[in-house]
Design a protein around this nucleic acid. Structure first.
Lengths: 119, 119
DNA sequence: AAGCCTAAGTGCAGTATGCACCTAGATGCG
DNA sequence: CGCATCTAGGTGCATACTGCACTTAGGCTT
């Protein structure tokens, strides 16, 4: 759930943890702890979507700076497709939300009419 | 993540598990197993958002039919607000996706300029 | 009676997450 | 210098969520 946003951030600009955190907040993703972010980054590196190098900053300890890989870009593209699908699902939610009863729903008994149900 | 959609379904029409599953598919939520759905329903009942009664169907075993509670309606409203916020986050994602580098991101070194960072 | 279908539920393993805590280098200051 | 503080990253533990496989149990068909 978090990964596509992280990957987008790094695809635009190689970055270390705190910079990525700023991105996520700019996108409106609050409630993301650094612990989760760091673990997500390490996992994405394991998966081959990111690469990292240690680089000294102008102040403080060295940072682990992440770069997106080719596999990461491909995965970002398919993540974008999934996010778009989810956005359409949310749109359908709001199409029904506030529309009142009987907005595209069947009575429980009507279920009996159905012949086959994909499993 | 699943709960708002389930709650919307039941808010429109009291329903049992399989009917709700049809809703979810109509909304575009695939990959939801019945096991997850049943557990989500029981949890929401524990939380006071749903109530259930056993009712015989025209065929087959009795069904557990769920009805939304007042607390459930309130929670649905705040869920809708959260979903809307998430939708806006996705919109921001697509605003940056494909926009190329430097689309609202800083160089790693610029982080040093920041004075305070909320924890 | 046996087998199948519908509806709901459970056990287990793997994954994800938050919270608290830890490591370690860099910097500031008396 | 010695010590506190800040920055950056990371870990351990407990909890929660999820999918897969399996189970329970009533009703229907033949």
């Amino acid at each position: 759930m978090l990964a596509p946003f992280v990957l987008l951030a790094v695809s635009l600009q190689r970055a270390h943890g705190y910079v990525i955190e700023d991105y996520l907040r700019a996108l409106g993703l609050f409630g993301i702890t650094m612990s989760t972010l760091y673990r997500t980054l390490r996992q994405m590196e394991k998966d081959g979507f990111l690469e990292s190098t240690w680089e000294p900053g102008p102040t403080g300890p060295a940072r682990r700076v992440y770069t997106i890989t080719d596999a990461g870009r491909i995965w970002l593209d398919s993540s974008a497709a999934m996010l778009n699908a989810y956005r359409e699902t949310i749109d359908r939610f709001f199409g029904l939300y506030g529309a009142g009863p009987d907005a595209g729903v069947r009575q429980p008994d009507e279920i009996a009419v159905e012949k086959e149900r994909p499993r």
